[in-house]
Amino acid sequence: MKIALMNPNATSAMTQSMLAVARAAAPAGVQVSGWTNSDGPKAIQGREDGEAAIKGLLAGLMSEDVKNADLIIIACFDDVGLTEMRRTAHCPVIAIGQAAYTMAVLMGHCFSVVTSTEVSIPIIEENIEALGFAKNCKSIRASGLPVLTIEQASEATCNTLSKEILIAKHEDGASTVILGCAGMAALHKDLEAKTGTVLIDGVRAGVNLGVSIIKNTITYEVEQTSIL
């Protein structure tokens, strides 16, 4: 099985960080490759950045690792280009925001999202509504931290995120908190230890759900071949 993790932004260090998380989450026999959108913005912060990333993301479908993938994960919590990629890609495409919400609901939890800046909140709200998960969402909280600041994973960043997670848990009533930025994936264990809260990051969720999708796709193709 081959999974391509596609980063819509141009920051390769962020791709490598997410790739390490994805590979650690992948079961034996699953290969995960990373791709960075060199033509995209340095970070996706708001609708304009997301729209600016789509052209390069679509062009990335022709890169070697992506062409050979059994599944593509869009590694941006805003689920940038998901609709466009699904229309064009040769294989199933999921996104880390979508995967995180789905995982929370499958686990039977009401959730809150802790994200980067305020500009991301309307997009996240729209995505949750479109997926039919609005009734499961207790709150969406902006930490005020830019994406690339989160990626640096400083102690101050962890403290700020921990504070928002605890507010979501104790004041908003969330039974689990979703880490609403791809750059938070590498902080999952530290934040969980600091807050004592069930956390979901979309990179791990994407890999776990992605493997199941590939298995079902392969089973379906085998069954169809047998029928023919």
Rank of each mutant, 00 (worst) to 15 (best):
S116M: 06
T117L: 14
T117G: 03
E118P: 14
E118F: 07
V119Y: 00
V119L: 03
P122A: 11
I124H: 10
I124L: 15
I124Q: 09
E125S: 12
E126N: 14
N127P: 05
N127H: 15
I128C: 13
I128S: 08
I128W: 00
I128R: 06
L131M: 14
L131H: 09
L131E: 05
G132C: 12
K135Q: 14
C137G: 06
K138W: 02
S139W: 00
S139Y: 02
S139P: 00
I140E: 01
I140T: 05
R141G: 07
A142Y: 06
A142C: 11
G144N: 09
G144Y: 08
L145C: 14
L148W: 05
T149H: 09
I150N: 01
E151S: 11
Q152S: 14
Q152V: 13
S154E: 02
E155F: 08
A156D: 11
A156L: 11
C158F: 10
C158W: 02
C158V: 08
C158M: 08
N159I: 13
T160S: 12
L161N: 01
S162W: 02
S162A: 15
K163V: 14
E164H: 12
E164L: 11
I165N: 00
L166N: 07
A168L: 04
A168E: 00
A168N: 02
H170I: 08
E171T: 13
D172S: 12
D172V: 08
A174F: 04
A174E: 04
T176V: 15
T176K: 02
T176Y: 00
V177H: 07
I178E: 00
G180P: 09
C181K: 02
C181S: 11
C181P: 06
A182M: 05
G183Q: 02
G183I: 05
A185Q: 03
A186D: 03
A186R: 08
A186P: 00
L187A: 07
L187V: 02
H188G: 03
K189G: 07
D190V: 15
L191N: 01
L191D: 00
K194R: 15
K194T: 07
T195R: 04
T195G: 06
T197W: 07
T197S: 13
V198K: 10
I200K: 04
I200L: 12
I200E: 01
D201A: 09
D201F: 06
G202E: 03
G202Y: 06
A205W: 07
G206N: 06
V207A: 12
V207H: 10
L209Y: 04
L209N: 03
L209E: 05
G210D: 02
G210Y: 05
V211W: 07
V211K: 09
V211I: 12
V211T: 12
N216R: 15
